[in-house]
């Protein structure tokens, strides 16, 4: 078993995975690409690290992509950087073609967006009334509700500004824009569930100290105090998470909910490549063990690496249908 982990050299999450994984992992850092000897022919590829560790297309049994392009060396110019990224993607694509990829592709949400996911989520969970609109089409569905504007793409402006979740009045929105609008959910708790190959880890964060609607504005960066605390999840809720994960083709991800005044959990979104270390900084709740077991293929519910060779483990998902359509 040799796992190819394509990532960046400054990624602490990858550090933790490598350390816990032990032998049998080859870490390819996009930002240190020139450190490696790489040969990729039309038949095979091989990578040798400066320490002499070698991985070839004949040996790799699993490949995971973890935020490889989050780091860049400012001394590498635009053109070679693009070539570097292309080569990393090509190796990852080879692994995908040979059914060794484990986890979600980095561009998962380019293929499956927030509105479509909300539609799938509605099969299992309550969801806030939500609308993506141009020219104010459909805004009548939100009339009478307090409404927030959110960002679909989470892009920044040229000035590096961002759109946090912001309450708006419908009649004040310029129609010649894309607006992603959602009914306000009054909630004391933000709920997030880390999902890893059938295992669910629930956490909640108290919203009572938030000055606005968006917890990201007030998040702490020093982690001197735990902000998210583990919660028990009911079996029926876990089953729903398993079902939606199956529908979306996800073995891994972070699901976000809010708890309304009636104690109901409302689905907000899922991040298919969501971070999870911040939920378990001190490695107390077993998230790292779960991830490593999943990557190794040793977890009890594992259906991941080379799973396509074992079709009895799962049915074709909605996502796979979408990708092959």
């Amino acid at each position: 078993m040799t796992l190819l982990l394509i990532t960046g050299s400054a990624d602490g999450t990858a550090d933790r995975i490598v350390e816990r994984y032990g032998s049998g992992v080859f870490r390819l850092n996009y930002d240190l690409l020139y450190d490696y000897d790489i040969a990729f022919t039309e038949d095979r590829w091989s990578i040798v690290s400066p320490s002499g560790l070698k991985l070839t297309s004949d040996d790799v049994t699993a490949c995971c992509w973890w935020k490889a392009f989050h780091y860049w060396n400012p001394n590498v110019a635009k053109y070679p950087a693009a070539e570097n990224r292309y080569l990393c993607r090509d190796i990852y694509g080879w692994c995908a073609l040979h059914r060794t990829v484990i986890g979600n592709p980095p561009d998962f949400h380019n293929r499956l967006g927030k509105m479509t996911i909300l539609g799938v989520a509605k099969r299992y969970f309550n969801v806030p009334k939500t609308l993506a609109t141009v020219n104010s089409s459909g805004v009548e569905t939100l009339q009478g509700s307090r409404v927030v504007a959110k960002s679909l793409a989470s892009e920044t402006t040229e000035e590096k500004k961002v759109l946090h979740t912001t309450e708006v009045e419908l009649e004040r929105l310029h129609p010649k824009n894309v607006w992603y609008l959602q009914q306000v959910v009054e909630s004391r708790w933000d709920i997030t569930v880390f999902y890893c190959n059938g295992k669910c880890f629930g956490f909640r964060r108290d919203r009572s100290d938030l000055e606005g609607l968006d917890w990201r504005v007030a998040q702490s960066f020093d982690y001197s105090q735990q902000e998210w605390f583990p919660i028990e999840l009911e079996t029926a809720f876990i089953d729903k998470l398993k079902n939606i994960s199956s529908d979306l083709g996800l073995e891994f991800g972070r699901y976000d909910f809010m708890e309304n005044a009636d104690g109901q959990l409302l689905f907000l979104e899922v991040n298919a490549n969501g971070q999870w270390v911040f939920l378990d900084i001190k490695d107390e709740y077993g998230l790292l063990d779960s991830v490593v077991a999943w990557l190794k293929g040793t977890s009890s519910t594992n259906v991941s690496s080379k799973r396509q060779e074992e079709p009895s483990h799962r049915e074709t998902t909605d996502m796979e249908v979408l990708l092959t359509a």
């Binding site: 960046g8 400054a10 990624d11 602490g12 999450t13 550090d15 933790r16 935020k67 989050h70 960002s151 989470s154 920044t156 590096k160 961002v162 946090h164 917890w215 990201r216 998040q219 960066f221 020093d222 982690y223 972070r254 991040n271 969501g274 971070q275 270390v277 911040f278 900084i281 001190k282």
Partner: peptide, 14 residues
């Protein structure tokens, strides 16, 4: 930007 809500962390959890 930390806009997307969660971040990549170094080994110390920062």
């Amino acid at each position: 930007s930390t806009f997307s809500g969660t971040q990549t962390f170094d080994y110390s959890g920062n």
